[in-house]
Amino acid sequence: MPIAPDAAHPHGTARYRDMREAIDRLREELPGKFEVTKEGIVHDMMSPGGPHEVTAARISRRLESVMPENLLAHTGTPDVEHEAEGIVRHPDVIVLDWDDLDVETSLAPHTLLAVVEVVSRSNPDNDWVSKTRDYPLMGIPVYALFDPRTGTGAVLSGIHSTPDGPRYAVREDFVYGEDVTIASWTISTEGLPRYA
């Protein structure tokens, strides 16, 4: 749910910095996940738990079991930030080189090989709509969505230019139980939990 004005305001850079500082303060006081998008600050009020966290952890482990040793499927912090576009996102799983994780601040999107989102029960449009727009704009080459509401998902890739800006050209849908390929790595979706 957007709770602040558009970052692309005529004074966009200053407004973006204000929103960035605001989410850093809010994280200390309120539960949930805060991000900055083109619409403003998004707050997913529900702290992820249960099926959401189990799905992210299983995907992380499964990816790491098939990736080279120098890569990591990370489920922690930091944020991914594209200041020029006024976007801060906090993916559920990020795939990157171990060396690129060694930063004091936010990660640069160009260091990521893929991101994975487990669709939020309380704000699914943030994952299916806003992030589908923001991640290619940030230059993230592969975006995988796992949706515990429906037991389905999609892998988006092939960034290309459109009149509305960069978008993913390729969408590969899957249902839980099938194998899915994220970037160069194929994993099982067997046994992933669903929301009750």
Rank of each mutant, 00 (worst) to 15 (best):
residue 91 P to Y: 00
residue 91 P to D: 14
residue 91 P to G: 08
residue 92 D to M: 01
residue 92 D to T: 09
residue 92 D to G: 04
residue 92 D to A: 12
residue 93 V to W: 15
residue 94 I to N: 05
residue 94 I to R: 02
residue 94 I to A: 06
residue 94 I to H: 02
residue 94 I to C: 02
residue 95 V to W: 14
residue 95 V to E: 08
residue 95 V to N: 11
residue 95 V to M: 11
residue 95 V to I: 08
residue 95 V to H: 09
residue 96 L to P: 07
residue 96 L to Y: 00
residue 96 L to S: 09
residue 96 L to A: 15
residue 96 L to T: 05
residue 97 D to F: 08
residue 97 D to S: 11
residue 97 D to T: 11
residue 97 D to Y: 00
residue 98 W to G: 01
residue 98 W to T: 06
residue 98 W to C: 02
residue 98 W to Q: 07
residue 99 D to K: 09
residue 99 D to A: 13
residue 99 D to P: 04
residue 99 D to M: 07
residue 99 D to L: 08
residue 100 D to E: 00
residue 100 D to Q: 00
residue 100 D to I: 03
residue 100 D to N: 02
residue 100 D to H: 00
residue 100 D to A: 01
residue 101 L to D: 02
residue 101 L to S: 05
residue 101 L to V: 03
residue 102 D to C: 01
residue 102 D to I: 03
residue 102 D to E: 10
residue 102 D to H: 08
residue 102 D to L: 04
residue 102 D to P: 05
residue 102 D to W: 01
residue 103 V to G: 02
residue 103 V to I: 00
residue 103 V to Q: 03
residue 104 E to L: 10
residue 104 E to I: 06
residue 105 T to G: 07
residue 105 T to I: 09
residue 105 T to S: 09
residue 105 T to M: 07
residue 105 T to L: 12
residue 106 S to H: 14
residue 106 S to Q: 11
residue 106 S to R: 15
residue 106 S to W: 09
residue 106 S to M: 10
residue 106 S to V: 07
residue 107 L to M: 05
residue 107 L to K: 02
residue 107 L to N: 01
residue 107 L to E: 03
residue 108 A to V: 09
residue 108 A to C: 10
residue 108 A to K: 14
residue 108 A to R: 14
residue 109 P to G: 01
residue 109 P to D: 08
residue 109 P to M: 03
residue 110 H to A: 15
residue 111 T to F: 04
residue 111 T to P: 10
residue 111 T to L: 04
residue 111 T to C: 11
residue 112 L to W: 01
residue 112 L to K: 00
residue 112 L to M: 11
residue 112 L to R: 04
residue 112 L to P: 01
residue 113 L to K: 10
residue 113 L to R: 04
residue 113 L to A: 00
residue 114 A to G: 03
residue 114 A to H: 07
residue 114 A to T: 01
residue 115 V to F: 07
residue 115 V to M: 05
residue 115 V to R: 06
residue 116 V to G: 11
residue 116 V to Q: 05
residue 116 V to S: 03
residue 116 V to K: 02
residue 116 V to W: 04
residue 117 E to D: 06
residue 117 E to Y: 01
residue 117 E to T: 12
residue 117 E to H: 08
residue 118 V to D: 13
residue 118 V to F: 14
residue 119 V to Q: 15
residue 119 V to P: 06
residue 119 V to G: 02
residue 119 V to I: 00
residue 119 V to F: 07
residue 120 S to H: 05
residue 121 R to S: 05
residue 121 R to E: 15
residue 121 R to H: 07
residue 121 R to C: 12
residue 121 R to T: 08
residue 122 S to C: 11
residue 122 S to T: 12
residue 122 S to E: 13
residue 123 N to E: 13
residue 123 N to Y: 13
residue 123 N to L: 13
residue 124 P to A: 15
residue 124 P to H: 15
residue 124 P to Y: 14
residue 124 P to D: 14
residue 124 P to S: 12
